[in-house]
Amino acid sequence: MEWINIVIQGVLIGGLYAMFAAGLALIFGVMRLVNIAHGDLIVLAAYIALMTTDTLGINPLLAIVIVVPIMAAIGYGLQRVLLNRTLGDDILPPLLVTFGLSVIIQNALLELFTADSRRLRAGAIEVASFPLAEGVWIGVLPLLQFVVAVAVIGALQLLFYRTAFGRAFRATSDDQSVAQLMGLDSRHVFALAMALSLAVIAVAGVFIAIRTNFDPAIGPARLIFGFEAVIIGGLGSMWGTLAGGIILGVAQAIGAQINPGWQLLAGHLAFLLILALRPEGLFPKVKG
């Protein structure tokens, strides 16, 4: 029974990792940009949620509807003003610039909010749980987070493969110069992709802030979880990032059960194992 509980915990936390990963995979897929500041932007979203709940006195889960549009606007602006200028044949400039951005965000948050760890209070839902079977309990909040993650990833998958919006993303990703010939301004398309990516991590940021303590320095570790989930899942489908997140979450949960110090190690080992055995990921991009 104990192991079933552990695996369930791992699956549910995997939803969160999948949201980190979906944001990364989205912008890498559309514009081949590896966003080193991704984790710090998640933390930024958590702090924006903190400010929102402090100012308005609303439940953090409700704050999602405010944090998402703010993060999307930041994403659009960031891409138009800064990141579009770094894109080109060379992959190094966007890496360096987003690395710099990561440092700037961490230090700005440190300056504004100090290094104290913070937490959002969501009320009774935080500790609510219900029995699934004899001895198997499910927390309401982790379940909600997982359901939201599945919904977000399903929505992204639909958007990418079933709408004009997603078609524009895929066309621009395939051939930017021909997409321009068809009237797609790639600067705008890329900015929309970044806005979408940050909207997804805004949701993730709020859930992180409710589940655990956070401080300005936790971003890079979230970036690593996101990367690992992307690589495990592969770039062929948004559902791959969900699978990647779940595998990472379960590995960490099992590792933590064996020895509390092994939580992160077990996640990294699962990642390395898949990288060694199936470097293209579980759901690789189909070559045409």
Binding site: A164, R167, R170, A171, D174, A179, M182, L184
Partner: peptide, 13 residues
Amino acid sequence: FSSLSVEENLLIG
């Protein structure tokens, strides 16, 4: 556009 179907290519236009 290689990852798009025939019809999707036309729709991009």
